[in-house]
């Protein structure tokens, strides 16, 4: 009965009123969401920017000392928990060196529709740096290993060997022939990991007091703010569905076989 009323209200966009903020729970979440999205976005760029070249290099030159050390470091990276990375980074760059701020978002500017962004001020970028490095740190080793493993497999296929026999520029063979085929499984796993990253934002945001939904959620839990907790879970669920749909569409762009199946079915 009560659940029926909740669903009815939720469908009308009413997720209840936060006990603590005395405001509609959805509004509270949406106000904090940009901070989290910016954090995840920045971390994703870092993850791609680091793991793609590293993974590729480790596969193309498996015996090179750089590849070996990258593989060794990645085991270390996977084993160290996010909150420890965060605290170590704060200790080094904020406490000891005093280069970077240790908490908060810094200066923010309104973008549009009430989206407060930290990406337009230098202060905002400085604040973003440590949290996104921390958040990326857990995924980078995983992606380096994934890309390397998939790439090694593709490099051993007949069509890559044939590409060598055709006498193509080596860069073309690695980036076009091998990497495009490596992308397919990486996109699939990446989509799932993007969701996992939302969970890690709770830890990262707590360590850095980043004013996003993750921190909000943790506070809501300690305050037993049930409407807010429910609203958070619902919003995260929606984010999950949207990103996975986007990933599926991306997959279709990369793989011509998928594209054709859709045209055929229609």
């Amino acid at each position: 009965m009560q659940y029926g009323r909740f669903v009815g209200n939720a469908l009308r966009g009413d997720l209840g009123t936060s006990y603590f903020f005395k405001e509609p729970a959805l509004d509270v979440i949406l106000e904090k969401l940009p901070a989290t999205i910016e954090l995840v976005l920045c971390a994703s760029v870092l993850i791609l920017g680091i793991s793609v070249p590293c993974g590729m290099f480790a596969a193309v030159r498996p015996r090179h000392w750089l590849s070996r050390s990258a593989m060794g470091l990645s085991i270390l990276g996977i084993s160290v928990p996010v909150f420890l990375t965060g605290i170590l980074l704060i200790y080094l760059f904020s406490v000891e060196l005093n280069w970077l701020p240790s908490y908060g978002r810094g200066l923010t500017r309104p973008l549009l529709l009430g989206w407060e962004t930290g990406l337009l001020t230098a202060d905002g970028w400085l604040h973003l740096l440590l949290p996104s490095v921390t958040l990326a740190s857990i995924m980078v080793p995983l992606f380096i290993r994934l890309i390397r493993a998939e790439m090694l497999e593709v490099l051993d296929t007949d069509f890559v060997r044939f590409a060598w026999a055709k006498g193509l520029r080596p860069g073309r063979i690695w980036w076009v022939h091998a990497f495009r085929n490596t992308l397919l499984p990486v996109i699939t796993v990446g989509g799932v990991q993007l969701g996992t990253m939302v969970a890690y934002t709770i830890l990262t945001e707590t360590v850095f007091q980043w004013p996003g939904v993750g921190l909000l959620f943790l506070e809501a839990v300690t305050r037993a703010d049930t409407p807010l907790i429910t609203a958070y879970l619902l919003v995260v669920g929606v984010v999950f569905v949207v990103t996975n749909a986007a990933v599926d569409l991306l997959y279709g762009l990369v793989n011509p076989q998928v594209k054709l199946a859709q045209v055929g079915a229609a």
Binding site: T157, D158, F159, R161, F162, A163, A165, K166, V176, H177, R180, N181, L184, V254, N255, P256, Q257
Partner: peptide, 15 residues
């Protein structure tokens, strides 16, 4: 130039 055995495997599926 070389022609491989299995044409199912010699061409890149995504190009």
């Amino acid at each position: 130039a070389m022609v491989f055995q299995d044409p199912m495997m010699t061409l890149n599926p995504v190009l």
